Amino acid sequence: MEWYISVLKNYAVFEGRARRKEFWMFALFNAFASIALSIFEHLLGTTLLSLIYALAVAVPSIAVSVRRLHDTNRSGWWVLIALIPIIGTIAMIIFAALEGDECENKYGPNPKKAG
């Protein structure tokens, strides 16, 4: 939960780097929240909650994806590759799973060593 909250606190921070753990913990909690909301909505017979939640986490999701790409020394613009059906999603998963640069890169210091 701590990783999820930290991403939300950095709501629109597109600079710096994000560890794999930060990215994947946010993705995991986001998936659990979406599933829970879907079940709750099914019981209520509405779709408004999922829409509100999706809009609320859209910017933080993009921001953490950009920071994750920065950790692998890629430009944040690579996040647009996810717009390509199937292949783009697979590419983003691979980029997010790669080990970040061990040393400082042009996007900042190694977040593992920073804290």
Rank of each mutant, 00 (worst) to 15 (best):
M1F: 11
M1S: 12
M1C: 08
M1H: 07
Y4G: 03
S6E: 15
V7I: 10
V7G: 01
V7K: 03
L8Y: 10
L8W: 14
L8N: 07
K9F: 07
K9I: 10
K9L: 12
N10M: 10
N10Y: 07
Y11E: 14
F14Q: 06
F14V: 08
E15T: 15
E15W: 12
E15Y: 14
R19K: 15
R19G: 05
R19W: 04
R20D: 00
R20K: 09
K21E: 07
K21P: 00
E22S: 11
E22K: 09
F23S: 04
W24G: 08
W24K: 13
W24Y: 14
M25H: 06
M25K: 09
L28C: 13
L28E: 13
F29I: 15
F29E: 09
F29A: 12
N30H: 10
A31I: 14
A31Y: 07
F32Q: 08
F32P: 01
A33W: 09
A33L: 14
A33C: 12
S34K: 07
S34L: 14
I35P: 04
L37E: 15
S38D: 11
S38Y: 08
I39W: 11
I39L: 14
I39S: 11
E41R: 06
E41F: 09
H42F: 10
H42E: 13
L43G: 14
L44S: 12
L44H: 07
L44D: 10
G45T: 11
G45W: 11
T47W: 08
T47I: 09
I52V: 15
A54P: 04
A54Q: 13
L55T: 12
A56F: 12
A56Q: 09
V57K: 01
V59Q: 04
V59I: 12
P60H: 06
P60F: 04
S61N: 09
A63V: 06
A63M: 04
V64G: 00
V66E: 00
R67W: 00
R67L: 03
R68C: 03
L69E: 01
L69N: 01
H70I: 02
T72E: 00
T72M: 02
T72Y: 00
S75W: 05
S75Q: 08
G76Q: 03
W77S: 06
W78F: 15
V79F: 04
I81V: 14
A82D: 02
I84T: 10
I84W: 03
P85H: 05
P85I: 06
I86R: 00
I86M: 09
I87F: 12
G88Y: 02
T89I: 12
T89H: 03
I90Y: 02
I93P: 01
I93A: 00
I93M: 00
I94G: 01
F95E: 00
F95Y: 05
A96N: 02
A96V: 02
A97W: 00
L98N: 00
G100S: 06
G100F: 00
G100K: 01
C103N: 13
E104M: 06
E104Y: 05
E104A: 06
N105K: 11
N105M: 06
Y107P: 01
Y107R: 03
G108C: 05
G108N: 07
P109G: 13
N110H: 13
N110G: 11
N110W: 13
P111T: 11
K112F: 06
K113C: 08
A114V: 09
G115W: 07
